[in-house]
Amino acid sequence: MLPKTSPALRRLLDDVGPVDEAGIQERVTKYTTRSIKHGSKLFGLRLALSMVDLTTLEGGDTPGKVASLCRKALRPHHAPSIPQVAAVCVYPSMVKHAAKHVKGTAVRIASVATAFPSGQTPLKSRLAEVRAAVSDGADEIDMVINRGAFLAGELQLVQDEIVAVLEACGDATLKVILETGELATCDNIRAASFLAMQVLRPGDFIKTSTGKTSANATLGNHQVMLDAIRDHFLATGTAIAMKPAGGIRTAKQALHFLVAVKETLGDAWLTNTRYRFGASALLNELVRQLETQRTGAYQAPWTFTEDSTGY
């Protein structure tokens, strides 16, 4: 078992091996030079769209806003060739409202439980939140890890909390948010990935970030986590899924993330059971690009629902 004291972090870092930040940057820059054209672009855009966890996490969320989000998730665009998204992602109090619209469809309900985004409430109340969300109909739970405990070296605590949430999830899929921006270094991100994956079930996720801090998913921290997933899979046979969240706004960015998946984890992860995008604005961008490809004309923003950036 993991000692409760800080040397445990050092030991974990040693065990999983170091990551060189500049080297990671160099690697991911190559993904951005991949040229995705024609059929492969269409495939990539559709794939990305099918992987979106369409998200609303605002203080001002209402049942009406969630309903509209669900309708958009089910039918992002009138064109029949545009697929549905993977899931809607809402606060626990909104799960029951979302359930009214998407239960029984292929679109799943994800909920950010565990005192999202800080995680700074007693474990008991975090677990209660998870159970409530699951009983209201959540298929997936996005939890945050205890970053404070991680940085203080209390790794066992971090892992125990993940296990407790996992138990509270029952059959629901668990996504463990590392909040990479607060872990600060590539070494920590890699270590935290392993800490989570060691107790996760096949098909559970590790996720970059909450989207509630300035540090979002980047190709860099994404790559560190993909490398960890690959190493864990090759060592144990357990396939953990991946979800970058926050900051992925353009179709081109989404394709770059998918290129990273294709070239690091291979074809088996190019499916929404193993990969998701946590995003809101991205959906419209993907639809817009797909329509551009279909019609051969660049699209104006106002053709797409709920776009507020139009001019």
């Binding site: 995705i36 492969s40 046979g237 294709k262 291979g266 074809d267 088996a268």
Partner: peptide
């Protein structure tokens, strides 16, 4: 199956 599959599911044109 402990190997990764780098196949043609998503080929670059």
């Amino acid at each position: 199956a402990r190997e990764l599959l780098f196949g043609d599911l998503w080929e670059y044109d």
